[in-house]
């Protein structure tokens, strides 16, 4: 083998080592979401689990008005599965929901949570900086209030929430849901899954955007080279 290839192999090995380390680091701390990054895509398995958490826990107080049941097909569920999910949900007039219904608004009294209104979750990941990570931190960020912090009545201390005081009680408990894929439903796992689901909900076109984008950019890089070459060739004749 020629020495140049030896160097190439060495460089590739080093890169793989570095890359592998970086990946391992990303997955442990800080938490890494597949939807993050330049070429990220929706982790459909996680988003499906996240939808289960959403439906079981979040949906009892929050709305997601921009989502229809049919949109769930984008997460890899079959139309029959989605129809089954929708049929189990009652719309405002009491009839079972269909594929074309939006997620229904839960009935909660105005005075619940000290008058704080649970926000709509359709776009929550786009509304907060570092959306998915923020939601994950918020859901796992409940802690006893430190000394010197006086909580408002029926508020909870949360390290991720701006100002530290949140009207939402800690929503997740371990094993509140049972995952079909057998994953253990710890609070951390549920928080991560529902974060990925809400990241998808805020940016449902992420996969298409990155797919089309990569092709468009590659095409335009080559077109730029051709355009510059042709321009230089045309102008050469004038000198």
């Amino acid at each position: 083998m020629r020495p140049v290839f030896g160097k190439l192999w060495l460089a590739t090995g080093l890169l793989a080592l570095l890359g592998g380390n970086a990946l391992a680091h990303d997955r442990l701390s800080p938490f890494h979401f597949q939807s993050q990054g330049l070429l990220g895509s929706t982790d459909k398995a996680a988003a499906q689990r996240g939808f289960l958490v959403y439906e079981t826990v979040c949906a009892s107080c929050h709305t997601a008005k921009a989502l229809h049941y049919r949109d769930l097909e984008a997460l890899g569920l079959t139309p029959d599965q989605v129809a089954g999910i929708a049929a189990g949900v009652k719309t405002a007039n009491g009839a079972p929901a269909t594929l074309n219904d939006t997620f229904p608004a839960p009935k909660i009294p105005a005075g619940a949570f000290g008058g704080a209104v649970p926000p709509d979750l359709s776009d929550i990941a786009a509304q907060r900086p570092h959306g998915a990570r923020y939601i994950d931190h918020l859901l796992t960020g409940y802690a006893p209030a430190p000394a010197g912090v006086t909580l408002l009545p029926s508020y909870y201390y949360n390290t991720a929430y701006p100002g530290g005081q949140l009207a939402m009680p800690p929503p997740l408990k371990a094993d509140d849901v049972t995952y079909a894929d057998g994953k253990s439903a710890t609070v951390a796992q549920q928080a991560a899954d529902v974060s990925e689901f809400l990241a998808w909900s805020a940016d449902p076109n992420l996969d298409a955007r990155h797919e089309v984008g990569l092709r468009a950019v590659l095409f335009l890089v080559f077109l730029t080279i051709i355009a510059i070459a042709s321009k230089r060739r045309i102008w050469r004749e004038t000198v």
Partner: peptide, 21 residues
Amino acid sequence: TAQYFVALVVSALIGCVLLFF
């Protein structure tokens, strides 16, 4: 036209990087 085409393609390239990523 050749020069403007280069400018247009480079703008499109910058635009695509912004739009898609």
